[in-house]
Amino acid sequence: MLTVAEVERIALLARLALSDDEKVRYSRQLSAILDYAAQLAELDVEDIPPTASVLSIHNVMRDGDKAVAGLSRADALHNAPETDGASFVVQATFDDEG
């Protein structure tokens, strides 16, 4: 059973603010799903390679470095919640002493 404290730890890692109700609900629901997934632990997969991609292609090279037009500044900025017309505006990552 996933405790509420564990749910809070995961929520911080995932950058999700949760209400108290959500924490309780997710501790119950995530526990049920993880219990369901526990059947995987019963299998012997010691010598089985993991599949990250079903394709057998590796190290795909670009066709050649060709200069193509990118997004204009206006296009890049037009969905932003806040801009100064030239850049995205966000809160400071570090405080003044940082």
Partner: peptide, 13 residues
């Protein structure tokens, strides 16, 4: 969880 699931994915394939 993750690596084990990927291994079982191989078996399904």
């Amino acid at each position: 969880y993750y690596i084990r699931a990927q291994k079982v994915r191989t078996l399904i394939k």
